[in-house]
Design a protein around this nucleic acid. Structure first.
Lengths: 162, 162
DNA sequence: CACATCAAGTCTTGATTTAAGACTTTACGG
DNA sequence: CCGTAAAGTCTTAAATCAAGACTTGATGTG
């Protein structure tokens, strides 16, 4: 059978496939976590993640190509650059925060969540809640119906099992 | 230098690391996407994803061990099982939906989003919005301050995860 | 009965990807 | 001139993945 190759993923007609073609490897979300924690330099990523330099180099280059990071020089002679999140990169924050909170809830440590998140506007520590852009109410898997926009017979589907 | 190994990830004191130890490989989020679209059987996952059977088998077993899927027999003689999402699995929906909407926005196709999502309660197609569990307002990366709960000097940081 | 089929895997072999660490480049400081 | 620093590149060995053949237990067909 003809199996899926990773370099074919980005051409799939599925937004999740195309997203994972960029951030779906074993390291990228951890790199982005560090970036959200203000890690910006090659050697700092290496030290923090204990990632092989070759792999880090390749991933950072991909993320720059994809517009998630931009390289910003912080000195001349020799030019040294740091990697900063773009708006496109910052937009991944909700997904990552949700994965963090999922880990807090479903794969907890005895010591409790290692990091808590405070909402600057209201001053409280909070959990992430997925809400509907239209009515503002919280949304769970069972509240959503996914519908294809492409031609063909469309059976309506619930976005969840049970 | 001593690099990070994947089987060490699940013991890290970082909720994202522990989450990615379960769902952070190249295939798992695609398997879960299919599960949210009500794919449930081994051969259906294989056909839908074009994944190698060996890898699919291993991933499904891991997800069952981790309590994200449960195996439910749908016939006897011979016993055949299907994979159904547990509550723990359903809780990954917000993260996945956000990644889908990120792809819709930042890696679009000419044909537009392949799938739209309707909120059953209000009847509208919607985008996912991250909100604060305490005040209900939308939250972006810059609105969050992450704070370690562990001993040691704590520098306040913006927009952090862990 | 003999044989084909089906679901849900397991096994083998060869191709890709990752890990570890040495090496390179460009510049500065003493 | 020598050592250090940042940001990589290169090489080799180990781990993971892809492709497809094979297995198991039961049913259906001639």
């Amino acid at each position: 059978m003809d199996r899926m190759r990773w370099d074919a993923l980005k051409k799939e007609d599925c937004s999740l496939s195309r997203t994972l073609a960029v951030i779906g490897d074993r390291w990228t979300l951890l790199i982005l976590r560090d970036a959200f924690l203000r890690v910006r330099r090659f050697e700092d990523f290496e030290a923090s993640l204990k990632i092989a330099r070759r792999v880090l180099s390749e991933r950072l280059a991909l993320l720059v190509r994809e517009g998630i990071f931009k390289k910003v020089p912080y000195q001349d002679k020799p030019v040294r650059c740091e990697y900063r999140l773009t708006e496109k990169g910052l937009d991944l924050y909700p997904a990552i925060l949700h994965l963090v909170h999922w880990g807090d809830k479903h794969a907890p440590t005895k010591a409790g969540p290692p990091v808590v998140h405070r909402h600057r506007a209201c001053g409280h520590d909070f959990r992430s809640v997925l809400t509907c852009s239209e009515c503002g109410e919280p949304v769970g898997a069972r509240d959503v119906e996914a519908r294809s926009t492409r031609a063909g017979p469309s059976r309506p589907r619930r976005a969840a099992t049970r």
